[in-house]
């Protein structure tokens, strides 16, 4: 790999990292897992002046459920930490379903959840998952911390709402109202392929009744597709095949897929519809039991 020349710093605190970003005036990039940045450096699609490696900042490699039931994921939590977490498997089914489908096992040992969300790849798994879950990010800049709702975070392909001198230090998923249910399905041609289509579904349920519903899509638009509005038609209802069909069709209509060598736009909509149905049908109370 022969990237363009860049300066490299490895600060020990978030404050020092923020200062480097601030000094870089937009020409500095954060290196966390590096699983998107490093290939882009290799291909010289990215040529930052300054790399700010945050891997030596202590205390960011956590994920934990707080007493109120909210889930907190630190900036250096790797995909595989979530994939192998017994707590996640038990309490957060959408993330548990998505984690083993992120890229490939090699990428998952190194890549980070928060980094993937920030990368805002239209085909990224975690941005879609976070939108479906109604999560937010805690970010830190020169003037301190603020939070950004996921619905406002992804602005376009590879574009997010962070200022150039801010670091996303934590992702937060609010506590479920009832029981957290949901799933994640992805069609890919091969492990590690960009998704032809991905569907994230997150439900809060009381028995078979839906208390909250979120759906987001990856790979079927110029950015992550937020279909939470379509999903909200489920709220207050029991999960039945007929309401599922209606919602699946509405979500598929919300997708904005492009015809390319992975398939026609109609085909990708068909995949979205099928996956939404499959995930939701699997949550119908008697099927769960």
């Amino acid at each position: 790999m022969y990237p363009s020349r860049f300066k490299y710093e490895s600060p020990k605190t978030i404050e020092a990292a923020v200062a480097l970003l601030d000094a870089g005036k937009g020409d500095a990039k954060i290196l966390a897992g590096g699983q998107s940045l490093v290939p882009m450096l290799k291909l010289r699609f990215a040529f930052p002046d300054q790399i700010v490696d945050i891997n030596n900042i202590p205390g960011l490699d956590y994920h934990r459920f707080d007493a109120d039931g909210s889930l907190h994921i630190g900036a250096l939590c790797r995909h595989e930490d979530l994939e192998h977490s017994a707590e996640i498997a038990q309490r957060q089914p959408t993330i548990a379903a998505a984690a083993p489908l992120v890229a490939d096992p090699i990428v998952r040992t190194r890549g980070t959840f928060v980094g993937s969300v920030c990368h805002a790849d239209p085909q990224g798994d975690w941005a879609a998952t976070m939108i479906a879950l109604g999560g937010h990010l805690v970010v830190q800049g020169p003037k301190g911390k603020r939070t950004i709702d996921m619905k406002d975070f992804v602005l376009g392909p590879y574009a997010n709402a962070l200022n150039y001198n801010e670091i996303a230090i934590e992702a937060v998923i609010p506590a479920p109202k009832g029981v957290a249910r949901g799933g994640y399905l992805k069609l890919e041609r091969r492990v590690g392929d960009f998704a032809t289509a991905s569907v994230a579904v997150a439900l809060d349920m009381d028995g078979n009744r839906v208390l909250r519903a979120g759906i987001a899509l990856a790979g079927v638009g110029g950015k992550t597709i937020d279909a939470n509005e379509e999903a909200s038609a489920l709220v207050g209802h029991d999960l039945t095949e007929s309401i599922i069909d209606t919602v699946a069709a509405a979500v598929a209509a919300k997708a904005e897929p492009r015809t390319d060598h992975r398939g026609s736009s109609d085909y990708k909509r068909q995949i979205v519809k099928t996956f939404v149905k499959r995930i939701l049908v699997a949550q119908i109370a008697e099927k769960v039991a």
């Binding site: 291909l43 041609r189 091969r190 492990v191 060598h261």
Partner: peptide, 29 residues
């Protein structure tokens, strides 16, 4: 049979110029 090919668009750009577009199967699939 399943995934691997190199094609070209109308301008003659090679679709299959890296391992994200030109697919080698892994042990998984």
């Amino acid at each position: 049979a399943n995934m691997q090919y190199q094609t070209y668009d109308e301008e003659g750009n090679c679709i299959g110029a890296n391992y994200m577009d030109f697919l080698l199967p892994t042990a998984w699939e």
